[in-house]
Nucleic acid binder design. Structure first.
Lengths: 243, 243
DNA sequence: CGAGTATTTGATCCTGATCAAGAACAGTGG
DNA sequence: CCACTGTTCTTGATCAGGATCAAATACTCG
C-alpha cells in the first residue's frame, strides 16, 4: 500500500543523529535505543499514548503530526505541528484534553518523559540538548500566543507561511517552495480562524503576487520579504518602505 | 518607601526550597547559589536581561512579573505571568521581541539558562526538577493557545479567574478570595481582549453572583463550580446541569 | 479633599464567523 | 484514459462578537 512505499520514498530521520549531541557516549546511545518505542501510524489516525498516566516525549522519525486541544465538543485548536526530526511533548491529564493525530502517514519514536530525562541526566550534554528542545517548544508556543491574541487574519496567514517555510521549505533561487502536508481545516484550526477565512487570505496573497499555489498543497513564496513584512514579525521598520 | 516595606510584610520564597528536590546535595546547592543574581525591581519597571545574548531562567522570589510580546508598535500580548515561587524562561533574539516587566515590586533571582542546566545536570534529580518546570510552562502556554484561539470573551475571563485562583487564591469556606496584582489592562493584554471587554465580562459575572469584587483588586469567587463550567475547562458534562 | 488615573458604561463599527452554493480536486472503477 | 463520486476548497451574502470611540464614574494617593 501507499503507506509503506511513502516511508521508503523519502528519508527517515534518526533520533540519535537529530537530537543527541555528537559526543554522546555509546553506552548512553544504547540506553536511549532501549527506551524508545517505534510506532507507525497512517494519516488521519489518533496516536494513543503508550502506557498510562505519564508525560511522553515523541520524536517524529518521519511525517507530520498535529496536537489538538478541545473546547467543548466542536471547537478545536491545533496547539502544535511537528515535522520530521522534531520532538514533541505530550502531557496527559491536563485541564483541556489534548489529542495527537497523524497528519500524514508517519513513523514515531515514543519515550516516557521521566525515563528519557533520567537517561539523559547521566550524560550532561544529552540532558542539555533535550532541555534546549523544550525551551524551543516554549518559544514556539509563545509565538503562537502572540499570533492568536493580537494578529489579524492576514498577519496570521503570513506568519504561518513564513514559519512553515523555515521548517519545511525548499529554497529555489529567490523563492521558497513547499508541499503543505496539512489541509485547510488544519491550517484554520492552527491559526484560530475558519477554513473560509484561510482560503480568502490565501487568495488575496495570490492576487498580490506574494505567493503562488498549484493544486491544493503546492505553494511557492514569491516575495519572501513582503510576506515577512505582512507577518509583522521582527523588523518594526520593514525592508520594503520606510527608509 | 512602600517598596521595601512590602517585601518585608510578606514572605520571600527561597529558590532551593521551592525548586530543588529535598535530597539535593549541599555541594550542588552551593553551586546554584553562586550562579544566581538577585535583583530587586520596582513595579512597572522593565527587567533587563543580565548579560548579552543568552537564554535566562528567572526565579520569582517575591512579587508578580509579566512577559510581554509585541506586534508592531501598539499591540501587545502578555505571554505569561509569573508569581512568587515560580520559574520563568526568558529567551532573547526570538522572532517577536519580548519584554519582562515587574507588575508589582519584586525580588528575582536570575540565572543563565546554560549555566543553570550544566549545574543541574550534575545532580540528576535537580535536572529533572527544572525540566519538569519547563514542561509545566509548555502546558500553560498551550492552554493559553487554546484560550486565545477558540474561547469567547466570557470563557476567557472565567478561565483566567479559575487559573489565577489555583495559583494565588486563598480558600475561605466555599469561596476563594484573591487580590489581583495586575490591572485591567494587564488582564486584557493577557486574554487577547480590550479593557472594556474585560470590564463588561467582570460586570456580568458579578451580576449573576458568580464573583464579587471590592475595590479594584479584591475579588471573591462565590460559585467555583459555575465559574469552572463557564470556563469550559475539562468536564464536557458540567457538574451543574446535565446528569 | 482634590487631582490624576483606572475603570465602567454606552453607542457604533468592522473583522472574521456563519450560512449557502458552486468549483476543483483525488480516488475509484470501468 | 476518462467518467463518476465524495470530499475539500473557493467564493459570495449576511450576521455577530468584540473593537473602537466617547463619556461618566470610581479609586488611589498625596
Amino acid at each position: 500500500m501507499g503507506f509503506r512505499s511513502m516511508l521508503q520514498r523519502s528519508k527517515v530521520r534518526d533520533f540519535e543523529e537529530a537530537v543527541l549531541p555528537p559526543g554522546t557516549p555509546q553506552a548512553s546511545r544504547l540506553v536511549f535505543r532501549s527506551l524508545g518505542t517505534t510506532v507507525n501510524v497512517a494519516r488521519g489516525h489518533l496516536i494513543e499514548p503508550l502506557d498510562g498516566a505519564e508525560r511522553q516525549i515523541i520524536f517524529i522519525s518521519h511525517g507530520t503530526v498535529k496536537l489538538v486541544g478541545h473546547v467543548g465538543a466542536d471547537r478545536e485548536q491545533i496547539v502544535a505541528f511537528a515535522f520530521d526530526g522534531e520532538l514533541l511533548v505530550l502531557s496527559v491529564g491536563t485541564q483541556t484534553p489534548y489529542e495527537l493525530y497523524a497528519v500524514t502517514d508517519c513513523q514515531l519514536l515514543i519515550f516516557s518523559a521521566g525515563k528519557l530525562f533520567r537517561a539523559a541526566a547521566v550524560s550532561g550534554p544529552a540532558a542539555t540538548a533535550i532541555l534546549d528542545r523544550a525551551l524551543l517548544a516554549i518559544d514556539r508556543s509563545r509565538e503562537k500566543s502572540v499570533l492568536l491574541g493580537r494578529k489579524t487574519a492576514k498577519e496570521r496567514m503570513a506568519t504561518f507561511l513564513v514559519s512553515l517555510s523555515d521548517r519545511i521549505g525548499e529554497p529555489l533561487g529567490e523563492t521558497i517552495s513547499m508541499t503543505l502536508p496539512m489541509s485547510r481545516r488544519d491550517i484554520a484550526d492552527s491559526l484560530g480562524l475558519t477554513i473560509e477565512t484561510v482560503s480568502r487570505q490565501l487568495t488575496e496573497l495570490r492576487e498580490c503576487k506574494v505567493v503562488d499555489t498549484c493544486g491544493r498543497s503546492e505553494i511557492t513564496i514569491l516575495d519572501v520579504t513582503r510576506l515577512r513584512d505582512i507577518a509583522g514579525t521582527g523588523a518594526a521598520f520593514g525592508s520594503s518602505g520606510s527608509i
